[in-house]
Amino acid sequence: MSQTPYSIVKKARDNTRPTGLDYIHNLFQGFVELHGDRRFGDDAAIVGGIARLEGLPVTVIAIEKGRTAKERSFRNFGAPNPEGYRKALRLMKQAEKFGRPVICFIDTSGACCGVEAEERGQGLAIAENLMEMTTLCVPVISVLIGEGGSGGALALGVADRVWMLENAVYSVISPEGCASILWKDAAKAETAAASLKLTAQDAKDLGVIDEILSEENLGKQPFYQGLRSRLSRTLTELAGDEDLVGSRYARFRRMGAQFLQG
């Protein structure tokens, strides 16, 4: 069965895939949701709180798209507003204070594109997350479970380990957006998808992600069991890194270096 990059994009967007909340409820025990950014409001597109991973307290943050029409509208289709990113940052700083690792699940076509989002500083909200995540003193793991749309996805993705499901995508722009800008033709999305190198394998080849997660049994207990023990194992490994922040700096410092000349 041969897959094209664009068919993977469609899979990544498929609304039968597990969403952020599915991961929260299946991987962790005793999730306590914590709302609000303490600045403006509570963004339903980002769900955050504290839970236990095989007994260990962790902070969990997930972008939630919703599945039914009603849920999707309530979750703004998983397109976070600035207050969503600020809630995420608040919870990450809280995790740092209490020495809890942070686990993020990313699934968004991009940050919310709207007048109010702009007026409340969407760009600044994302920038602050990027900046603060680079020096967070606790381990951070980010998992791309569906769409990884641009800065809106990266705002939860400055992590010590970044993983991608095999049919997730990660891109600087949607294939449709890219095609309409470059070729004035959104129908060329198929070509754009191939050119943008947005599949998990591409991201791994570019050194952007660390591991590709198999989707065998996706959404079923064996899948979650596997992911749970992988998360646990990796957190143990990261706990042994005495210069976690230095390693994270080095991880992102390398990005693109292989292409430089001069």
Binding site: L154, S171, C178, Y249
Partner: peptide, 26 residues
């Protein structure tokens, strides 16, 4: 914005530059 012809590589520059700005700030 990010240069779309460099795809993910350009997206990652946002994190890379932010890390350097943070060090300078700290």
């Amino acid at each position: 914005g990010a240069r779309m012809q460099e795809g993910l590589v350009s997206l990652m520059q946002m994190a890379k530059t932010s890390a350097a700005v943070k060090r300078h700030s700290d």
